[in-house]
Simulated scan of single mutants.
Amino acid sequence: MVELDPLIRAFYRDRYVEDDRLARSGHGRLEFLRTQELLRRWLPPKSVVLDVGGATGAHARWLASDGHHVTLVDPVVEHVQQATTIGTFEAVVGDARHLDQPDASVDVTLLLGPLYHLVEAADRAQALSEAARVTRPGGLVVAAGINRYAGLLEYGSSGALTETNEREFIEAFETGRNHDDPNGFTNAYFHHADELTAEFAAVGLADIETLGVEGPAITVLHFATPEEADTLLPSAIRLARRLEADPRLISASFHFLARGTVGQ
């Protein structure tokens, strides 16, 4: 039984077009290309991959094209219906906290969205534990987190930060929680990089690495036109790659990507 927050379900069903999120803007393209780069660096060839929270298949598409055997799991029925039309991977409705897959049945489990919307620490821990359970010993769990400073970086870089709305970031800084905004994002949890690392360690994952995805140029790409993005992307990717593990600059990214190994 998938128990999805009704506000989150309404956000993805009625207010947000998920299918082209990583293609329609410069910052989305930067996030996509860097996530793809990191996954290609980490994943063994021809892996059995479980893409939990894979939405309409933005990453499942290219993973399948790369030769991986991919099963996508998502709680939003409409996402799964759209993903099934692609035909190169399996797509099923499911909940990151209660996966139907057997123990040690996949090589890699991806959580490239679920930790955003599991605002309770216990739910995030359960999702990571489930990912570790279904992944074979020595296999990888990879999860994305939204940087707790992402909203402030976006507003401050756009000229939209004011004395009034600056105060609205205080709760997010203190608690990590974002509340549903009819004109913005929905209920979510925002991480510090070391916090995401600690959540991996708490469920017994080893050899943990947490990197910044987009790098400091994300704020420039966020407001670039499509034509400007074409020019800016190669340099932005090179910059992100250079600084991805620098603890002094990792929080310049809007997103983090963490990986951990399941114990033998």
Results as ranks from 00 to 15, higher is better:
199 E>V: 00
12 Y>V: 04
92 V>H: 12
192 H>A: 08
74 D>K: 01
47 S>W: 02
120 E>F: 12
86 I>Q: 14
236 A>I: 00
38 L>Q: 07
56 T>A: 13
83 A>Q: 11
97 R>A: 01
38 L>C: 06
213 V>K: 06
78 E>F: 03
58 A>W: 11
189 Y>E: 13
74 D>S: 05
50 L>G: 03
86 I>A: 15
181 D>A: 02
246 D>E: 14
112 L>N: 04
11 F>V: 03
184 G>A: 08
224 A>F: 01
19 D>M: 11
192 H>N: 07
5 D>R: 11
240 A>F: 03
24 R>H: 07
69 H>P: 00
218 I>R: 10
46 K>E: 04
126 Q>E: 14
94 G>K: 03
11 F>M: 04
118 L>W: 05
1 M>L: 15
101 Q>L: 10
211 L>P: 06
35 T>M: 13
135 T>C: 09
238 R>V: 00
8 I>C: 06
124 R>P: 12
137 P>M: 05
46 K>D: 08
52 V>L: 06
172 A>H: 06
166 E>S: 10
157 S>W: 08
176 G>M: 00
17 V>N: 13
129 S>P: 03
43 L>N: 05
1 M>R: 15
125 A>F: 05
94 G>T: 06
155 Y>G: 01
157 S>T: 08
41 R>S: 07
172 A>R: 13
191 H>G: 08
43 L>H: 02
56 T>E: 14
99 L>G: 11
65 S>W: 06
108 V>L: 02
40 R>D: 11
165 N>T: 06
59 H>F: 15
160 A>N: 10
174 E>L: 08
85 T>C: 13
63 L>R: 05
225 T>F: 00
253 S>G: 10
213 V>W: 09
2 V>L: 13
165 N>C: 07
218 I>K: 11
220 V>Y: 10
215 G>P: 11
163 E>H: 08
247 P>W: 06
37 E>F: 10
191 H>V: 10
164 T>N: 07
160 A>M: 05
199 E>N: 01
105 S>I: 07
151 G>A: 13
118 L>A: 07
123 D>P: 12
234 P>A: 00
92 V>F: 04
243 L>Y: 08
117 H>R: 07
49 V>G: 01
66 D>A: 10
121 A>L: 13
256 F>A: 07
144 A>M: 15
166 E>L: 13
204 G>D: 04
250 I>D: 12
72 L>P: 05
215 G>L: 11
263 G>T: 14
185 F>A: 15
21 R>Y: 15
46 K>F: 07
115 L>I: 04
213 V>Q: 06
234 P>N: 00
124 R>N: 13
230 D>C: 00
4 L>T: 14
185 F>I: 12
195 E>Y: 00
12 Y>S: 07
